[in-house]
């Protein structure tokens, strides 16, 4: 691509709302209404539901519900979304790797992307010698429901695939939270997160590769969270004129928490 010369040329480089124009200090009418439309769609997406039978057919999973009574109760009471509904029974499978597929704050992205990611992840885990438990679908669920499910199964580790809060430009984003030795009471600092998995964001293949790397590192470290640093090198995306190049020490990593259904 040629170097940008016009303000509007910036749009070639990002999906962000750049070069919107300017009327006085405000937004031109079309840009203003574009925003209002996107917000309306995102508001509706918050109230979208998982198509559980379809997902169950794709994953061969069992289905559990959180203790939240409905969507409004889910939004106002995150504590209920972290607990399993009373009477939930899961067959123990000590030492397994547990995979949880949860609706979180928007079901759309999980519905579309979880089947492919679970398939790739299961294959990778089995190749690494893991006993992978059948996936568990959890509805009206927050990230920490993985702790309750992981404990019930006796899992060594749990990955929670969960719908992220819809943004204006991304109604279909999924995040993954990895927790070693899951049990209720784990804090966010004890998890590693991969976020923005969606078309136009992180691909399913990239997310799977990153997760498998984290799982292996967590297994040898015996922990997830801030103690686990990602030493995966980053592929250079751009040569700036003065690139940073003082890489003397081994690269290290810690994932930040991203907005989602915690």
């Amino acid at each position: 691509m040629s170097a940008p010369t016009l303000w509007r040329d910036l749009r070639r480089f990002t999906a962000a709302r750049v070069a919107l124009g300017r009327v006085g200090n405000g937004l031109p009418t079309a840009a203003h209404l574009d925003f209002q439309e996107a917000h309306a769609q995102a508001r509706d997406a918050v109230w979208s539901k998982l198509d559980v039978p379809a997902l169950q057919a794709a994953l061969g999973a069992q289905v559990v519900a959180s203790a939240a009574p409905d969507r409004r109760g889910y939004l106002l009471r995150p504590d209920l979304g972290r607990r399993l509904a009373e009477g939930t029974v899961l067959a123990p499978r000590p030492g397994c790797f547990a995979i949880v597929v949860a609706d979180g704050l928007c079901a759309t992205g999980v519905q579309a992307q979880a089947p492919a990611l679970v398939a790739a992840l299961s294959a990778g885990l089995q190749a690494a010698g893991w006993d992978v438990a059948p996936p568990v679908i959890a509805t009206q669920a927050r990230v920490a429901i993985g702790d309750a499910i992981g404990q019930a199964l006796g899992a060594a580790m749990v990955a929670v695939l969960i719908g992220e809060r819809p943004g204006l430009s991304a109604l279909d984003s999924m995040g993954i939270y990895l927790t070693h030795a899951p049990r209720p009471g784990r804090t966010d600092a004890e998890r590693n997160c991969i976020s923005n998995i969606r078309p136009g964001g992180l691909s399913v293949a990239e997310a799977t590769a990153k997760l498998l790397w984290l799982v292996a590192a967590a297994r040898s470290l015996g922990a997830t969270g801030v103690a686990l640093k990602d030493e995966q090198p980053v592929v250079p995306l751009l040569e700036v004129e003065r690139p940073f190049e003082n890489a003397a020490d081994p690269p290290v990593f810690s994932e930040v928490s991203q907005p989602d259904g915690r």
Binding site: T14, A15, A16, R17, V18, L20, R22, N25, G26, L27, A31, F35, A38, H39, E164, R165, P166, G167, L168, S169, A170, S173, N196, Q258, P259
Partner: peptide
Amino acid sequence: GVPGADDTMLAYQSTSFHDGLYVRA
């Protein structure tokens, strides 16, 4: 200041560059 008030990474709405111009003016 976020382009068009839409943070495409954190998936929330903050104030835009235009909003900054507005409130200063």
